[in-house]
Amino acid sequence: MGIPEVRPDPPSPLIRYGARFFSIAPGRWFLRRVGWRLDRALITATDGHLSMSATRPEVLLTHIGAKSGKQYSTPLTYFTDAGRVIVIASNYGDTRHPGWFHNVKAHSRVTLAARGYRGAFIGEEITGAERDRLFELAKQFMPNYADYEKRSGGRRIPVIAFTEAGTE
């Protein structure tokens, strides 16, 4: 796999601090309204070598709109597990799934880019005990996910695994 491996190790003090900041109202507002747009531009401009987040690994997901058929790009925090890229469809704890999740469900072939690597991947929603295991790793790795789970109004936050389909 060309996407850099990221182990879901417990967070560093810097990540814990960032998680606390982004769990308060101004931090959440920034992430939802501004941060992801800036991050997408920075990741694109630097071919995935730089991201706004110095504290967490980011992958740029390029996907096709389920209804529009248009191409979109979304920066997401990720970790790897058994050769797969794992992302969490948290939508910052909103009660609805993020748009990119619906797009990946409709068109599972996507492009992922990180740190100079770009490749074709197939996305699959993980369910059952495997989903629970991966979500627990995600909460250990990125403390915000536990907060998002509480804020989601009982929504079961999806876990998506991407497996490389071949190079572009």
Rank of each mutant, 00 (worst) to 15 (best):
P4L: 05
P4R: 04
E5A: 14
V6G: 00
V6S: 00
D9A: 11
P11F: 02
P11Q: 00
S12T: 15
L14P: 00
L14A: 13
R16F: 01
Y17H: 13
A19S: 11
S23I: 12
I24T: 14
I24N: 07
A25T: 13
A25E: 12
P26G: 06
G27S: 05
R28C: 06
R28S: 09
F30M: 04
R33G: 13
V34Y: 09
V34N: 02
R37E: 05
L38C: 11
D39A: 09
L42V: 14
I43C: 03
T44W: 03
T44D: 07
A45T: 04
A45W: 02
G48F: 02
G48N: 07
H49M: 08
L50E: 05
M52P: 05
M52H: 10
S53D: 07
S53C: 09
T55K: 06
R56E: 01
P57C: 00
L60C: 03
L60V: 01
T62V: 03
T62R: 08
H63G: 04
H63A: 03
I64C: 14
G65I: 10
G65M: 09
G65A: 11
A66T: 08
A66D: 05
S68Q: 12
G69S: 11
K70I: 03
K70P: 07
Q71G: 11
S73V: 05
T74M: 10
P75W: 07
P75Q: 10
L76S: 05
T77K: 03
F79Y: 08
F79K: 00
F79W: 02
F79C: 00
T80K: 01
D81P: 04
A82V: 06
A82F: 06
G83Y: 09
I86M: 03
I86P: 00
V87P: 01
V87L: 06
V87I: 12
I88W: 04
A89W: 06
Y92E: 15
G93F: 07
T95C: 07
R96F: 13
H97M: 11
G99M: 13
F101R: 02
F101M: 03
H102D: 12
V104W: 03
K105N: 09
A106K: 14
S108Y: 05
S108T: 14
R109C: 11
R109G: 10
V110F: 04
V110P: 03
T111P: 00
T111D: 09
T111I: 14
T111C: 08
L112M: 08
L112H: 04
A113W: 02
R115K: 15
G116A: 08
Y117D: 11
Y117M: 12
Y117V: 10
